[in-house]
Computed example of a mutant assay.
Amino acid sequence: MVDITKMNETIRNFPGVTRKNAIHEVVDLFPTYDFKHVVAAEGEDAAVLECGNMCVLFAADGIMEKLMHSDPFLAGYYAVLVNVNDIAAMGGRPLGMVDVMSFKEGTIGSEILKGMKAGVEKFNVPLVGGHTHPDCNYDSIEISIIGSVKKSDVLLSSTAKAGDDIVFVIDLDGRFPESVPYSYDSTSFKPNELVQAQMEAVCTVAERHLAHACKDMSNPGHVGTLAMMLESSDKGAIVDVTKILVPEGVDEYKWAVTYYGCAFVFACDPEHSQEIIDIFSEVSCAGAVVGKVDDSKILKITDGEDTGVLFDFTKDIVTGVRVKR
């Protein structure tokens, strides 16, 4: 039985959620709506730049300092993974990456590079350039990535509609690395072909126009990521937490604030929910309808008996980003 109050507190107070609060302070300084070739940017996993009947997808991610110190190999690997996931979430296919790497001593730099190389091979995305600071007083790795998608097939995270089903798809076959206890690794030990097929599954959803919105589940966890989608879509929802799939033996509160190797949230017409779930079942991901989008601007969670307000977007923020349409 899930304690709704405890689940609310776990998600609301999780640093993966609270550290997103500052995003709007940056976004507000750089509005994009006067740039006609920018199809979408604010509130999205990647910027969407129009280029004829295609769109260029443009994203960047940096790795938290804690991971750099605990496991520089995984820091390099995840620097690739998180960027590939951002492109996939938009319905796109990655084209190439560049990096900026800084380190204090060669051992850490070497481990970062080994991790990046493993990521390049796993996801079959080339690293085509970048910049290295070999003599810094700190260690960091940031990667920027570009991808492409047909303009007609772009998946945004800010376009969920009232009445949509909320579908979670997650690869449940993984493990928690000792060095990163809140990261669920479901990719590093899998065949490259399977991991790449999981990313391609999102493209299939996009090309069949099965979803109104999509977002890859990132640092805020499963419902935390959904909250970002709803906030940018100016919507609310109710989620039945008992319907969220959890690996056997994993605590549901820890699972709610986990970073997953392969996981996406979709908002879609109910008639397409099962097809999305079936597409991902073919690439070893489990899926379930866990809730419904509404116009309330309030995200509620329930166990079928108790219900609690997680976020009221009329007064709460996750990122604070309000997408202008």
Rank of each mutant, 00 (worst) to 15 (best):
M7I: 03
K300S: 13
A79Y: 01
V125W: 01
E42W: 11
C285G: 00
V27N: 10
G106C: 09
A41L: 15
L155W: 01
S186H: 05
V205E: 02
G236D: 07
D316E: 07
G43P: 02
Y77N: 06
S232Q: 13
M1I: 10
D240M: 01
E121Q: 08
C268K: 01
D3E: 11
E142K: 08
G129W: 03
S232W: 10
N137T: 14
E248M: 11
S232T: 15
E200L: 09
S183T: 13
E105C: 12
M217C: 15
K104R: 15
K297G: 04
G261K: 00
M97G: 01
Y260A: 13
N21W: 06
G92D: 06
F176Y: 15
I146D: 02
G174M: 04
V223I: 15
Y260N: 13
F58P: 02
F103D: 13
E305L: 09
D278N: 15
A118P: 09
D312T: 03
C262A: 13
T258G: 12
K254M: 09
I63N: 05
F176W: 11
R19Y: 12
T159R: 10
S140H: 05
G287Y: 05
R325Q: 14
G119Y: 10
V289D: 00
S148E: 15
S70V: 11
D45F: 04
S284A: 14
A47S: 07
I238V: 15
D164W: 09
D99P: 01
P94D: 14
D135R: 09
K161P: 01
T159E: 14
L299T: 02
D86A: 08
V289R: 01
A75E: 06
Y33P: 08
I141F: 08
Y184I: 04
V283Y: 04
K151I: 05
V239G: 03
E200Y: 08
P191M: 05
G92Q: 04
F280I: 12
V27D: 13
L245T: 10
L245D: 04
K104Y: 08
D34L: 14
N192D: 15
V195M: 08
Y259M: 12
E200Q: 11
G221A: 00
V39Y: 08
K122A: 06
V169N: 03
D234F: 06
V82K: 04
S233P: 03
E231S: 01
V17F: 14
C268Y: 02
V48P: 07
A46Q: 06
T242W: 07
K243A: 09
S296A: 05
S232N: 13
Q196Y: 02
C262Y: 03
F168Q: 00
E248F: 09
F35A: 10
Q274P: 00
G52F: 14
G320K: 11
V149E: 09
G109F: 04
C268A: 11
E252P: 08
V48E: 06
H222M: 13
S70K: 14
C203K: 10
